[in-house]
Simulated assay, not measured.
Amino acid sequence: MAGTFTTRTITMATGATETMHDLTNACSAFLREAAHGRNGLLHVFTPHPTSGLAIIETGAGSDDDLLAALRGVLPADDRWGDRHGSPGHGSGHVLPALVPPHATLPVVDGELELGASQSVVLVNTDQDGPERQVRLSFLG
C-alpha cells in the first residue's frame, strides 16, 4: 500500500515580543484528521528566517530558560551585520542556526509520540513580525 502525504499551514499571532507558542495541540488535531490511526512521520516547518522549532518541556520554567539562554547568546543589540528592521533584529536571523526551523517526529497509531512533558513549540524572537506560519505535514 502506498503512503499518503497530507499537509496544512497554520497561522498564529506572535505579537511584538519574543515568544514561545505551544504547537502540540495543533499537531495532535492535525494528526487526528490526517493520520487516521496510521504510523508515519509528522514534519513541522516554519518558513520564517527569525523563527525556529523546539521540542521542550513547557510550563515548568524550561521555556523561560530557553528564551533567557537565547537572549544571552543572541543579544538584540547593534553587533549584528544584518541591520534591517528594528534595532537588534539581526540576532533573530542567526536563531535558526541554533533552533532549527524544522522538526520531524514519529507518529504511532495516529498519535504524536513525544516523551513525558515534551511539547512542540515555535520559538520566535522577532519583534517586527506580528504573526508566523507553520506547515504541518504527515507522511504515513
Rank of each mutant, 00 (worst) to 15 (best):
A2C: 01
T7H: 11
R8F: 00
T11L: 01
E18N: 04
H21N: 14
D22C: 07
N25E: 15
S28A: 15
R32K: 14
E33K: 14
A34G: 05
A35M: 06
A35F: 04
H36N: 13
G37D: 14
G37R: 15
G37C: 14
L41M: 04
L42F: 04
F45N: 11
F45I: 11
T46R: 05
P47M: 06
H48A: 09
P49C: 07
T50C: 09
L53K: 07
I56K: 01
I56C: 01
E57K: 02
D65Q: 08
L70S: 07
R71K: 14
L74K: 09
R79D: 14
W80M: 13
D82N: 12
D82W: 10
D82C: 08
D82V: 06
D82K: 04
H84S: 10
G85F: 09
H89Q: 05
G90H: 08
G90E: 13
G92Y: 02
V94Q: 07
L98N: 13
V99A: 03
P101L: 10
V107S: 10
V108D: 11
G115D: 08
L122W: 05
L122C: 04
L122F: 03
L122K: 01
V123C: 09
N124L: 01
D126Q: 08
D126S: 13
G129I: 12
P130I: 01
E131F: 03
Q133H: 13
L136P: 00
